[in-house]
Nucleic acid binder design. Structure first.
Lengths: 162, 162
DNA sequence: CTGTCTATCATTAGCGC
DNA sequence: TGCGCTAATGATAGACA
């Protein structure tokens, strides 16, 4: 019954693989939790296994979204440095889209506050993680903005006509 | 010199914390690599530490982006299943907030499309359930809208001046 | 299929360079 | 600061319930 050294290769036996996965997964999470406590770092992990119907998101959906959004929002220099994906996954798409918004935001002070706050709401918080407060804020801003624009257009029109 | 049980709390000594982090980080990555080899799962991790200038992205940027995008793009069913509003409070609040936007939308045809699509995005999907596609759409609409408004203002201003 | 047990391997804290 | 070393804790494969 001497324990053998573990063979580091794919486990072909299905139930053995499941068991190993289950046990090691918990071990891994424990370790991860430990390093986070000991060193106060910000981290997250996502795992898709063939066994669980849903992805395992560690340490929580909330934290994962926070970390992902931080990762996505890194400075342009840092972003460029790690643009390794030629096909254009998520990050590039986000970058591209956000560049347009940022550009417009800089160009147009009229809408600065609205765009900025929406930007913060959408990206600062992470995806799928909007609170009621955020939505409220966004809605108010949209309303305000629509009203202001309307007033300004009316003003200009009046000046033009009279 | 008996080794003590490790106290699972934040290590206040700076260099000790760095050392522990470095060692445990490599241990964690090894374990993660092992479970991936043994069980053939798809996973990624992102860590922000105060020590490394850049985030540690495991196992690679490419894999991380792939996994993140898979996570973000899960089917609506899967997303819905996981994002439950336990209080039942969300929908009411949303309705109330959205009414304001709808009102403005009706008042102001200039911004109809943008508001409508945002309305759909926010209301139709529910909170915290936005996909990357939605965000993209919303961002595009904001950009477009800002551009159009700007052009219209410029046009009116030109007409006024000349 | 999941949990418990335990002998064994694996990780790592503390120390000295 | 970051190695190498080593003893002690920690993780876990395999057996069993």
């Amino acid at each position: 019954m001497t324990r053998e050294k573990v063979n580091l290769a794919y486990i072909s036996n299905d139930s053995a693989r499941r068991t190993t996965f289950r046990i090691r997964k918990s071990g891994l999470m424990k370790k991860a939790q430990e390093i986070m406590t000991l060193c106060e770092i910000e981290a997250c992990a996502i795992m898709f296994s063939a066994y669980d119907p849903e992805p395992i998101v560690w340490p929580s959906e909330l934290q994962a979204q926070h970390v992902i959004s931080r990762y996505m929002n890194m400075s342009p220099l840092e972003q460029t440095k790690r643009l390794v994906d030629p096909k254009g996954f998520t990050r590039q798409m986000l970058e591209k889209t956000m560049k347009k918004v940022t550009k417009k935001r800089k160009e147009n002070n009229e809408h600065n506050q609205m765009t900025q706050v929406m930007y913060q709401c959408l990206y600062g918080r992470g995806f799928g993680n909007l609170t009621i407060g955020d939505l409220n804020k966004m809605s108010d801003l949209i309303s305000q903005n629509l009203g202001e624009t309307e007033r300004r257009l009316e003003f200009l029109q009046r000046r033009h006509n009279g």
